[in-house]
Design a binder for these strands. Sequence first.
DNA 1: ATACTAAATTGTAATAATAACAAAAAAGAA
DNA 2: TTCTTTTTTGTTATTATTACAATTTAGTAT
Lengths: 143, 143
Amino acid sequence: MYEKYVKILKDHTLKITSPRLEVLKYLDEHHTHPNVEEIYSSLKKTHPSLSRTTVYNSLEILKKNRIVQSLAISGSELRYDIDERLHHHFICNRCGAILDISIACPNMDKTLQGGHRVEEVQGYFKGICKKCQTKEKGRSNNG
Amino acid sequence: MYEKYVKILKDHTLKITSPRLEVLKYLDEHHTHPNVEEIYSSLKKTHPSLSRTTVYNSLEILKKNRIVQSLAISGSELRYDIDERLHHHFICNRCGAILDISIACPNMDKTLQGGHRVEEVQGYFKGICKKCQTKEKGRSNNG
DNA sequence: ATACTAAATTGTAATAATAACAAAAAAGAA
DNA sequence: TTCTTTTTTGTTATTATTACAATTTAGTAT
Ligand SMILES: [Mn+2]
Ligand SMILES: [Mn+2]
Ligand SMILES: [Zn+2]
Ligand SMILES: [Zn+2]
């Protein structure tokens, strides 16, 4: 059940703790780029002793070890992604969904930009998602 | 002195107010991508009646009118840029500087990504800036 | 120039995300 | 099993931003 996550932690010589395993499992099963509150309140249901601070701490150490990445795309809160591979994101200004954008980008892999050492790359697109556009059209057509 | 900023506001049929002119002038003279606090505390010196809320309000309306853009690059606070043209940014994890990155990007101008309507594009690089790297080298060489 | 009205500014209070901290608990090594 | 270090927990503090109501002001009409 949790072997996969145990292995990830072990590979990074991190201590195996229940909160860390749960956070990893949650992110692995929810590729929605959740924020801390979503992760916390969901896990809290089945793990009532869990502390919000622990979720922050766990995510921080997972990020430091490059097991997860954080996205500042919303502007108000960090979102988390267990997919550490470099990929771009789209946020819908209507429904708030954050979606992966799989495009090739020539600047993505560069470790140097203008003489600066690059350690992290984030590509954000903001607008109206496909779904919300469909809804919009439907509304104007029907009534 | 302020004609330039008056014109910008007029062109967007926005009311000409002292706080708006001052915010525009500040951004025009400081291409450092300042946050609200930096703008506010600087203007407050010469305009003691200025309210922090007004700076927030002004920036919001300027952004809505696409006169300025906001950057979520720092993760904790929005940064503002009077240069509305699409360009990428680099933030230094050491000194906090936010710098323009002028690179051609094939994805920048696209108004559609994966079927989603794109209204805004942000490209962020994070790492250690050129200056901080030089300092680092100097330190390790000299002791 | 004056009066009017909608919009903007101000100050304060509320909210929300995150960080700091100390005590209790738990992981992993000995 | 014992010990030590790290993690977790709960609480409090901080910071960025928003909400709101009262006051002021910009721009327009008179
Ligand atoms: Mn993703
Ligand atoms: Mn810029
Ligand atoms: Zn949507
Ligand atoms: Zn730097």
